[in-house]
């Protein structure tokens, strides 16, 4: 790995990575639904980011890079909780900027929201929480964080077509779940 002066690392960390922390925490919280788990996930993400900071290209998409690390951390933690020994190789963080990203986390598709704890009360939040992790994730990345399809594709290691179809399905599932509640709040959906 390329070595980097400590003061340069600290400057990049402070100026480019730390400003993303609220967005990362929000993402972590909506993946785990547990404040302690979200704090741990964000902390681990930043410690890993600092460790691999030499592989980050200054001025590029720091937010997407951090989100990818957090997503991998979430998968590893999930596997720990479900006693599955497979680990994500953090070496692939180094290859984040490579043109060809041939890593395949098809097992991500199999994630289920067994760690979802449904702690929040209102019906809309419950509807969002009840989406399976892959669908909730694309909603968070696109509708909350404003990532483009190609950025989401890189963060999740799935083709752009998969991003589109997951978004389409997630939004339709949400609309179905929310229609009754939304109408009572004055929002109507008259889809054919």
């Amino acid at each position: 790995m390329v070595t980097m002066e400590k003061n340069i690392k600290d400057k990049i960390f402070e100026e480019e990575l730390i400003p993303q922390i609220d967005a990362l925490y929000n993402f972590a919280y909506h993946l785990t639904y547990n404040e302690d788990d979200a704090n741990d996930l964000v902390q681990d993400t930043y410690l890993k980011a600092y460790r691999f900071i030499a592989s980050y290209e200054v001025g590029t998409n720091a937010k997407a890079w951090l989100f990818k690390i957090l997503k991998n951390g979430f998968i590893n933690n999930y596997r720990k909780k479900t006693k599955q020994p497979t680990k994500v190789d953090y070496q692939e963080i180094v290859n984040f900027h490579a043109e060809e990203d041939d890593t395949n986390y098809s097992s991500y598709m199999d994630l289920r929201q067994e760690i979802f704890q449904g702690m929040m009360g209102d019906e809309i939040t419950i509807a969002i929480n009840s989406l399976e992790v892959p669908f909730r994730t694309v909603i968070l990345l696109c509708d909350v964080e404003g990532f483009k399809y190609d950025e989401i594709s890189k963060i999740l290691d799935v083709p752009i077509g998969t991003v589109r179809s997951r978004l389409h399905r997630a939004r339709n599932m949400l609309k179905d779940k929310l229609r009754e509640y939304a109408e009572s709040m004055g929002y109507s959906d008259n889809r054919n």
Partner: peptide, 14 residues
């Protein structure tokens, strides 16, 4: 619809 969803998910700060 987008604003509706976003408003429910964007509430957590570190």
């Amino acid at each position: 619809f987008r604003e509706f969803i976003k408003s429910r998910l964007q509430r957590k700060k570190v």
